[in-house]
């Protein structure tokens, strides 16, 4: 018996073995034909997966991201900001004096002593320019580049995760992180505010008063808008992440871009360009606390985030689905 014949007979044995395995694993396969080699033309190689199984990767990505020590550290820093602000305000006002009376400090800080709910707004206004987007930049920048860096990207791709599917899962997880990060700031602020200060009716920017329940509802809406404000940066970071095999480089580039754009957005000579910078309308969330709500800038902000998500999401897709993965 020649080697070739032996290989041939091994090939025949494949079919018998596959049958045995099919028996053991009927839970995974449907019908007798599943897993059997009957040629590619009729497509019977394929297991018959449920479309729902595709969400396994999203779940895995969420669990993996939120179990990372780094993610938890970022969230801990974000949770600490309202604590620091709340305690500082409490100490400064313990002698009965007012804080930030002459417009210093973050927005709404003067009202915290009257109503702890304003700590939520103060904390969001304090973290939105830098802490929150920096955390998002780290997660988004590392999304693909970090996997490439570790070499795990090639194994996800041969699993096969599918490039478009993996990118969508990474994008979705980054957006979930935007939401979680914002909610962490808001909830921490609400807890600290309730512990240190009285809660009660809310005086809007327009001077009208709304009940605590409606005040809480508006605070929740504000948190959602703040989270949505971060989507443009998340898309930008994801795109940067597809460009390099270094997670650190992608994170640094994304955060660097954030700082640069934030600075450019302060330069009056760039007036014509400024409305197109992704952070330009970030602080418009305060308009939700007017009575009635001023929607103009809020909608401009959400629209701008949508445009950034579409442009950089497509760019990330174009790059990632065609790129050579050699790491």
């Amino acid at each position: 018996m020649s080697r070739a014949e032996r290989a041939q007979s091994t090939g025949q044995r494949t079919d018998q073995r596959t049958d045995q395995r099919t028996d053991q694993r009927t839970d995974q396969r449907t019908g007798e034909q599943a897993g059997r080699r009957t040629g590619p033309a009729d497509g019977t190689y394929a297991r018959t997966p449920s479309p729902l199984w595709t969400f396994g990767l999203l779940r895995s990505e969420l669990v993996t991201t939120f179990r990372r020590w780094r993610t938890l550290a970022l969230l801990a820093v974000l949770a600490a900001v309202p604590v620091l602000v709340g305690v500082a305000v409490k100490i400064e006002t313990s002698d009965g004096s007012a804080v930030g009376g002459d417009g210093e400090g973050p927005a709404f800080i003067a009202q915290i002593t009257n109503n702890g709910l304003f700590l939520v707004l103060t904390a969001l206004a304090a973290t939105l320019p830098f802490f929150l987007p920096m955390a998002v930049g780290v997660i988004a920048g590392d999304a693909i580049a970090g996997e490439a860096n570790a070499g795990t990207l090639r194994y996800l791709l041969v699993a096969p995760a599918g490039r478009a599917r993996l990118l969508i899962v990474k994008g979705a997880t980054t957006i979930v992180f935007c939401l979680v990060a914002t909610v962490v700031v808001a909830v921490s602020a609400l807890v600290v505010g309730a512990l240190l200060f009285p809660l009660g009716e809310v005086t809007t920017i327009s001077g009208t008063r709304i009940g605590l329940a409606e005040g809480l509802a508006r605070a929740l809406l504000i948190a959602l808008v703040v989270a949505a404000s971060l989507i443009g940066l998340a898309a930008l970071g994801l795109f940067v992440s597809t460009l390099t095999n270094s997670g650190i480089a992608a994170m640094a580039t994304t955060v660097g871009l954030l700082i640069t754009v934030q600075i450019l957005d302060q330069i009056p000579q760039l007036d014509a360009l400024r409305p197109y910078f992704f952070p330009h309308y970030w602080l418009s969330f305060a308009d939700l606390l007017r009575d009635p709500v001023h929607w103009d800038d809020l909608l401009r902000n959400l629209g701008l985030q949508g445009v950034y998500a579409a442009v950089f999401g497509s760019a990330a897709w174009a790059r990632f689905t065609t790129r050579d993965v050699t790491v």
Binding site: Q28, W53, G56, L57, S60, L156, A159, A161
Partner: peptide, 20 residues
């Protein structure tokens, strides 16, 4: 940062034809 077991769970989850 994942255990050996969780590494395999992750790679298995990446395969859309793998029954959870």
């Amino acid at each position: 940062f994942l255990s050996g077991h969780d590494n395999l769970v992750r790679y298995d989850a990446a395969d859309p034809t793998a029954d959870p």
